[in-house]
Design a protein around this nucleic acid. Sequence first.
DNA 1: CTGAAAGCGCTTACAG
DNA 2: CTGAAAGCGCTTACAG
Lengths: 334, 334
Amino acid sequence: MNKNITMKDIADQIGVSTVTVSKALNDKEGVSDELKARIKAIASEMGYRVNTVARSMREGLTYNIGVIIPERFTGPDQSFYLRVYQEISKGLEDYGYYGILHILSSSDEQAQQLPRIYYDRKVDGFILLGQIGKPYIEIMHAIEPPILFLDFYDDHSDIDAVVSDNFYGAYELTNFLIRQGHRNIAYVGSLHATSSIQDRFLGYYKSLLEHHIALRQDWVINDRNEHGNYLDIEIPDELPTAFVCNCDQVAYLVVQKLQGMGYRIPDDCSVVGFDNDIYATLTVPHLTTVEVNMKQLAQTSIQSILSKISTPDTKFGRIVVKGKIIYRSSVAKI
Amino acid sequence: MNKNITMKDIADQIGVSTVTVSKALNDKEGVSDELKARIKAIASEMGYRVNTVARSMREGLTYNIGVIIPERFTGPDQSFYLRVYQEISKGLEDYGYYGILHILSSSDEQAQQLPRIYYDRKVDGFILLGQIGKPYIEIMHAIEPPILFLDFYDDHSDIDAVVSDNFYGAYELTNFLIRQGHRNIAYVGSLHATSSIQDRFLGYYKSLLEHHIALRQDWVINDRNEHGNYLDIEIPDELPTAFVCNCDQVAYLVVQKLQGMGYRIPDDCSVVGFDNDIYATLTVPHLTTVEVNMKQLAQTSIQSILSKISTPDTKFGRIVVKGKIIYRSSVAKI
DNA sequence: CTGAAAGCGCTTACAG
DNA sequence: CTGAAAGCGCTTACAG
């Protein structure tokens, strides 16, 4: 079926020039409506498909966006970022763009090796999905194509970022616990691991402050080491009545741990998560959590990176996408 | 940093022609070693990056592969295909290729609407990941770029396919159950839903036949409707001693259901799954299952589609990738 | 070993 | 309203 029909073939067929065909097919001015219609009809009849490569060369744009995800966020039990990528990829199509995924291996990250899509000039811009090492940020910052951080940020550089509202999400979730009568509330998450964990912690802390509840360092519990690998979570000797976990997966682990120790959730202890991912409903009882608006995260990123491509000096700073609390049965009123 | 350095810039810098630069950078014959080294040094110094778009236009290749996944396989609790895509995408880079993901919406599938990457000539070939409707297969079959089915096949068309060894996997798993003393073994999976479910069923059936165990129709249990949506699984009145489930997620549901009815797994009833995905270890007890060799599935697909691109009439037929049984604690000896 | 010429398929700026 | 010319950056086939 229709091997390699070009504008020239259509032009020859009707006896016009390729210029006219190009104008007609792209709805540009300067072709009579009648001729335009005829060209379009013939094009479709001949099974014409644009050669976007030729267009790309002419315009100096690839119509591709590179989406970079550090390998450590793509383990068998973490599909959130892959899903975000999926949304981005789907959303980009509406703009005639495509998303090319690059999983950044830990060794490349260490060695500050830029992805092949960069050296191949395969993309017009990059979305970095997930916290990445500082040195790597620096080299990405130095390259020419525009870049955007997604789901994290770094204050020492002036790169635009799209993040979900970790701070207010955790703040409101903690407020909710307090309204349910809790005052002994722990936070689970290693504060130096990612900016998300840090911001969620600060939201939790703000809620405590507003309610004049003292922060207890022994109730701020590490969940992962500096490589991002999960630790065995240590339940404090003096049990709080509620745990604010920095993500659903960790909430799932906390619930398992507590149940293993004989506690009933939420009767003996309440647990909340963050993300509303698969772990929220795998946990029994299902978790009260914060739903990140993934579609909007994707849409906002797409619009930001595309406008940075079309208008190189565009700056957005940090764009925050709101989440919402999903109420389920992991919290008891006391 | 280095905006748009071209071969011409390098050529001008040294005072040679672009032809020589091209030959040097691509390690082609016809440049003295000395000059080649000098050109490479200058290129790297100037921060030269190839313009693959120009190369693509010249060669008529995009160096992209389209990976199409039907939307219904990408729900929040199904990440298997996304992971396969990730493997493919990673593996393609070693060949200078990239994978462009296209999620085929159910409406496009219905309307037999080909993906935009097709009309945009964005890819040199397609990998169809996951069972797709017959009419859609027909239209994909009719297009010019080579296509490959991954993880399913269709015998009425002559399209190459890479599949995991569903038949022998289920066969060996059932043999194992029988060796553990089971003779009352049910199969869970809707036989007309996908070729995988069908083949796994036939492997199970072959094992029964070999052991002279009669197939009981009431022990072949539906798990999904014709749209692929999960049904509430009906546990038969007369309980078998073991369930062979067509995938881990369904095994997880079966275990939940049985436990909800008061049965202990594996003491009262054994359950096995297939895939060794996240559900295998989320299920308590962890599932004995068949691990699909995802990396090899990806590698084989990559090699197949690339050789179909370079040698258009290459045919492979159906390539089967072996799996292996993972023994865990969901099976009891009786 | 080195380079001038042609061409991949498109689009833009300009001329008629 | 229509088209001839130029050019995007590369590579191949050919000539020297």
